[in-house]
Amino acid sequence: MEKYARQREVWDRMADAFQPTESQTSVEPLADRSGKAGVGTQPTPPKAQATPINLVGRREALQHMTQNVLAGLTLALWSSQPRAVEAAASELEALELPELPPPQPGEDVLMRMMRDLQRALAKPKEQRHWVMVIDLRKCVGCHACTIACVTENALPPGVLYRPVMEEEVGTYPHVARRFLPRPCLQCGNPPCVPVCPVHATWKGADGIVVIDYDACIGCRYCITACPYGARSFDFGEHHSDNAPHRAEYDMVASPEYGQFRQRQGQQSPVGNARKCHFCKHRIEKGMLPQCVTTCIGRATFFGDANDSANLVSELIASPNVMRLKEELGTEPSAYYLV
């Protein structure tokens, strides 16, 4: 929750900066110039939207912001009780899916995926099956997804969830390079799950293989058992290990599983196996996995394969689809378009 608390802090400061004119501006629509409305006054409800194609109205955006600021202020009062904060925040955020404009021709494919995502989130968890589709023809090997994943999950050195493999074919001057990004494939029949001696990793109802960091004893059997090398071990190193003091970016709490753990000493997730979880903390808030959002060529797609109207369902029905090491019977949930 810390991440969002921090966000609220920023909003708080913004609100403070507006303090002298707050009675006039922050919640008051510019159109209404009466100047009578104060802080406590209920902002006038937004007018009926006749133009659905347009973005969120300014009044509405301001209203959202005010609500966020108020929520942040209220939550800050309770900050001494982290559990209460967590519960309250999750309740609030469970309702807060980003509002999306209706589809329009030529829009970014991300918009469609987000709409699909919201439709999937409306279903019970058991009926979702998260799937990633990677179009290898579009991948240019920029490694932006690798880096975005590292930043999103605050990964230490040596822990990578989504490397991009490179291959050079042909001889000069006829040379080509091929790229193969590899997230965790979230196998339907994951070899890493049954080997865990302490039941610390399992396949969730939505098809994502998760790890309970507090249960994991760090035996690395799952890392050994994964036929895709999709699991890393957190050895407890930091990017700034050889620097005179620990850098702040090394102390950023990772939002993984919504747990916001800080890596300190030998506390989990140090000493645990770690893996890609399709940014579970993001998708449950209506956001796409960070690698999907980041991909500059829009080569990575994400969605619910149980929904036939979903973009990924369309893509994996195409004839040029393949999965890695299918002969092992692992039934990966990541597909490649070739």
Binding site: M165, E167, C226
Partner: peptide
């Protein structure tokens, strides 16, 4: 390497 090229990818 579990996948060809994984040893050079990282």
């Amino acid at each position: 390497p579990m996948l060809p090229g994984l040893d050079h990818a990282i």
